[in-house]
Simulated scan of single mutants.
Amino acid sequence: MTALLLCLAMLLDAALGEPGWLWRRLPHPAVLMGRAIGWCDTRLNGGNLRRVKGVLTVAALVTGAWLLGTVLARLGPVIEVLVVAILLAQRSLVDHLRAVADGLRLSLPAGRRAVAMIVSRDTADLPAASVARSAIESASENLSDGVIAPAFWFLLGGLPGILIYKVVNTADSMIGYRTPRHLEFGWAAARLDDLLNLVPARLTALLIALTAGVTRDWRDIARDAGQHRSPNAGWPEAAMSRALGVALAGPRPYDGRMQNFAWVHPAGRRSLNAADVDASIVRLWQAWCVMLGACFLLFLITF
């Protein structure tokens, strides 16, 4: 039954995306999670024993997500489908990518403004190829974080599973940085997020590779993934780079400084443009379709 509910939620998310009229009136669940994490960061991230406080914060967030998920699951399958659809991000991811592609076709500044909505790096001076590359990298990572991983944890743990994943992933995005402020306090969030994404990131890479017909390059994908600064994000990026025949990652600016990150698929084409962003959207939908089909097949097998 869980697999069928996931299929329905995936279809609902793909059809409607993020209804702006609703979230202008009510806070999005991710916003509520962010407020809770921000409150903990403000109140607890100071003094001694910061790592211990961070561990207790993550434990409290996970417990709260589990309790909320358990209560919501008792309200019936309709509520489950709605909650899961809200927590998936396929349509919104595609919409953001399309905005980058359309912006690049209009002008470079428009492309920069659009990509600034989905990446954390400095975008003010990015050339067109870097704008497109940034968008494709975001597409790869967010297919895993925003679609495949939530779906995976819903299949395994129902609503408690997907809510635990989302709150940990949100915590990692807010406090899981190796900065003086968050190195200790955000340690637990970052490590648990790495663990929860271990399988989904590789599953995402496999879905991209399968639909693009590049599974023969799996050893190269694994090698490139190992060069990434993240233990998980490199997998979907490496698969997407092979699927499109382009080079991803590489040097990029953060906080006014150029960071010398390794290239993913360094032999790939580096002169990216709006058409490459369009091609990445096609890959996203292809991977999504395979995931949907696999969930429906799982439902038929277990029905």
Rank of each mutant, 00 (worst) to 15 (best):
V84H: 02
P253Q: 13
V131W: 15
L126M: 15
R191T: 01
L44I: 09
D95V: 08
I37E: 11
A132T: 04
L195C: 00
W285I: 05
W187S: 01
D95S: 12
L49T: 14
A101I: 11
W23Q: 03
S271R: 06
P27Q: 13
G20V: 05
M33V: 03
R121M: 13
L297I: 11
D13P: 10
P160T: 09
A212M: 09
R35D: 13
M258L: 15
V94Y: 13
L143F: 04
L56Y: 12
F296P: 01
A225S: 11
L72K: 02
L11M: 11
K166C: 08
P29R: 00
S138I: 06
A205T: 00
L203S: 02
L4M: 10
L272R: 07
L22S: 04
V290S: 09
F296K: 01
L198M: 12
N260Y: 00
A189T: 05
I175R: 10
A190V: 03
L206E: 04
T57G: 08
D125H: 11
P266L: 14
R257P: 00
G69N: 14
R178F: 12
N169D: 06
E18S: 08
L183M: 09
G103V: 09
L272E: 09
P19Y: 10
Y165I: 09
P253N: 13
L198I: 03
D278T: 03
R219W: 15
A36F: 02
L298K: 04
L22E: 05
N197C: 02
A249C: 15
L22Y: 12
L5F: 00
A14Y: 14
T2H: 12
V214P: 01
R24K: 07
H96T: 12
L88D: 14
D193V: 07
R202P: 04
A99D: 10
G46M: 14
I148A: 03
F299N: 02
S134Q: 06
W21K: 06
L297W: 08
R24C: 03
L156Y: 02
A275R: 08
D102V: 10
L104N: 10
W66P: 06
G20N: 05
D276S: 05
D102W: 06
A275K: 00
